[in-house]
Design a binder for these strands. Sequence first.
RNA 1: UCCGGUGUGGCGCAAUGGUAGCGCACUCGACUGUUAAUCGAGUUGUUAUAGGUUCGAGUCCUAUCACCGGAGCCA
Length: 466
Amino acid sequence: MEKSKRDKVKEILRRGGERADVRVMGWVRTRRDSKGGFSFLEINDGSCLSNLQVISDHNIDGFQSYSEKLHTGSCVEVSGKLVQSQGKGQSVELQAMSIKVYGGADPEQYPLQKKQHSFEFLREIAHLRPRTNTFGAVMRVRNRLAYSIHNFFQDRGFVYLHTPIITTSDCEGAGEMFQVTTLDPGSPPMVDGKTDYSQDFFGEKTSLTVSGQLEGEVYAMALSEIYTFGPTFRAENSNTSRHLSEFWMVEPEMAFYDLEDDMNLAEDFLHYLFKDVLEHCQEDLEFFNKRIDKTILERHRGIVENSFERIPYSEAIHVLEKSNKNFIYSVEWGCNLQSEHERYLSEEVFKKPVIIFNYPDEIKPFYMKANEGGETVCAMDVLLPKLGEIIGGSQREDDHEVLMKRMKAKGLDTEHYQWYLDLRRFGSAPHSGFGLGFERLVQFVTGMENIRDVIPFPRTPKHARF
RNA sequence: UCCGGUGUGGCGCAAUGGUAGCGCACUCGACUGUUAAUCGAGUUGUUAUAGGUUCGAGUCCUAUCACCGGAGCCA
């Protein structure tokens, strides 16, 4: 194989025109035979949604010897001449001069057919589903969003911080954790009737991270503005279209930001991402708009063009109370907003993203900064129509005494968080941050209904195959 | 975890308690600058698993498992 010469389908289609010496490598999506002595092949190499139509005369070099293996799913290399297409449906096509099959795909056994499959079925063949239009498009969009997230923060001077995956601190209330241990689960060393973690690999009980926030704060208090973008693990037994046991989270943390700065950043961030993806993933988004959800393009443009609604929690409760809607869960000040409430606000009242801020202290974690009076804290959630919460953030409590009090009130072991408290003892500063669930973003952008279909290999309760 | 639903050829689905069928895919043939190709013929089943009721169970009952949807928790 001559490494120097390979043309990507995306580039071929972008440049168009007639050209000799074109060589593509990719997977056959469909083959149509003509008894006129030639075949049509559609080749996809993942560089874009579109296939390249190849027309191959049956006498060309390689066709006869490989014909048996040339079916949907097989991997091929085709060299030839790019010409204007005589048929409808494509402007150019590749007239094959030689063809080679790298690996065949027995049509009797290859599970992907030339037709639509249910996403449930495709999940069972997660190793083959990237070869479908939908999953190719999802992963290209996912890739662009990840790239765009880095661009956004890097342009603003944020430092990309790698927080640890293995941790001893739970970020309070963030959910059940996966334990990390090298002890024998069958017979761990015991002391006083309990597992003796001093004999474990790290000498104490450790888990997979549920959030990099606390460690992120440490570096924000030195580098001013940081962000993390990494895997996060929650051992919650939640089985919904919006939850994964392993997912990716983006967590910026900024010194000298108050809650309003935090909300501004979150809004700018989402605006930036939607604008960027609309610009750079046109073909894929049009596909989603046509095949998955006919409203996404319009909705995304709406998000880019309009500012978000911002409403304090107390006012949101007020709006809900006088709505005359029959909610399953009744509304009163102090309650957690339920999915139905959030959806009502973002979908029916405001019809756009909504930021709710200043939540009651009692329903939020210890690290959030108390507002005057102490009833509410500087928390904010960004709600998207249909999807619900995509961002949760807050200004952090930066007063040592107040934080100590809050931790004790919520029953936390202050010893254990000494290093976190130290940030307030030495050179404390007002600071804020938020967390964005990356897969939820991909879900919203693509219109995919199930979060398991926007990550390459989903991990959910009872499912860690592949 | 709770509530509801579903589980039938490779895939998508059908079958008042009475002979398991259709579409797609696949195989063969015909036709064709084709493009969700078209036309004809053909192959494919321990009806999720284990019990039970019944003369007889895909269908009814019990349990288990899996999946889907909703809820809770959250991102």
